[in-house]
Amino acid sequence: MPRPTQVDPRGLRVAAAITSVVLAVALVAPQPVAVTLLALQAAIFAVSAFGGLQYSPYSLFFRRVVRPRLSPPGDLEDSRPPTFAQVVGLAFLLVALAAYAAGAPTLGLVATAFALVAAVLNAAVGLCLGCELYLAGRRLGLGGSATT
């Protein structure tokens, strides 16, 4: 297996902060705007999850605008846990989008809210809920192909 990519954890926190703002606006915006924002955010999750974290526009913003103003990173992080978490985020937004499409806006709000809580926790205290779900999933006999 190739050596996993290393990422700057501060970039992940910045990306989570931008995600939080987008999802918060999506909760209070009129439905057409909300759906557009959720679709854009879902696309960004998909790019990060399947293309690579470094291709996300949030990551580009961090590298171009934020990082030049910061000192070099003290420690780098394995990219696999946050990549896995992007898949979890994407899943929640797909549920939200499907709910809106099916005419169940309340479910759409709730699914968006779950993704928002995860993003806020990631940005504020560095807790990656998506990563925490990994072992729970394996205990239930799910997944595992990504690392083994």
Binding site: A24, L27, V28, P105, L109, T112, A113, L116, V117, V120
Partner: peptide, 9 residues
């Protein structure tokens, strides 16, 4: 509703 959900979240 959205605002309530936002505050709760």
């Amino acid at each position: 509703t959205g605002l309530v959900v936002l505050v709760v979240a």
